[in-house]
């Protein structure tokens, strides 16, 4: 027994038969199709989030964060990157920057976790980026003494290179 059925019947019963007659006469098949297409629209998978062009504000901050990072100013890079993350929490670039900052801050465990999140923010077809992240994960794992796991990450990166 699907409750959604009964829930529909109750309000529907409040409508007069007159209106039902009109709606029915307009074509139930059309309406059914409408319902199904709406269903599909409702549940249709959206494009998986990935690095789309950033709006101006986070873009400016991210550039600043990347500059700080490139010049070794990790504290400033981190505070700016967190500011971007608050504005755009699903952006691959900022998530991967947080991973790299964590790594430079001698925290390969945290860096690895951020890298997973960066991977999840990328669509499969972004192979170059995904390969880069897997190579980064390999480095993080190696730094933690997880040699086999690092090899596995490198194999994943290599597989993407072949693809």
């Amino acid at each position: 027994m699907e409750v959604s059925f009964s829930r529909m019947r109750s309000p529907m019963s409040r409508l007069t038969s007159f209106w039902f007659a009109i709606t029915a006469s307009l074509g139930l098949a059309f309406m059914g199709g409408c319902v199904h297409s709406r269903d599909a629209e409702e549940a249709e998978p959206e494009e998986y989030h990935e690095s789309q062009p950033l709006p101006a504000a986070p873009s400016m901050l991210l550039e600043s964060a990347e500059q700080h990072f490139a010049q070794g100013r990790l504290t400033m890079a981190h505070s700016q990157a967190e500011r971007v993350y608050r504005l755009e929490p699903r952006n691959y670039r900022v998530i991967f920057l947080l991973a790299r900052i964590a790594y430079e801050n001698k925290s390969p465990e945290d860096a690895e976790q951020w890298a997973y999140k960066a991977l999840d923010a990328l669509q499969p077809q972004f192979t170059a980026e995904r390969r880069k992240v897997w190579e980064f994960i390999a480095t993080c794992r190696r730094d933690q003494g997880q040699i086999d796991a690092a090899e596995e990450a490198l194999r994943e990166a290599h597989r993407l290179r072949k693809d």
Binding site: E2, S4, F5, R7, M8, R9, M12, F20, A24, L28, A29, M31, G32, C34, V35, R38, D39, E42, A43
Partner: peptide
């Protein structure tokens, strides 16, 4: 669907839209 009967929407999140 039986064209002569009342349509029954069945999926999630759509009934109010109907």
């Amino acid at each position: 669907p039986d064209p002569s009967s009342q349509p029954v929407p069945t999926t999630t999140g759509t009934d109010d839209k109907v």
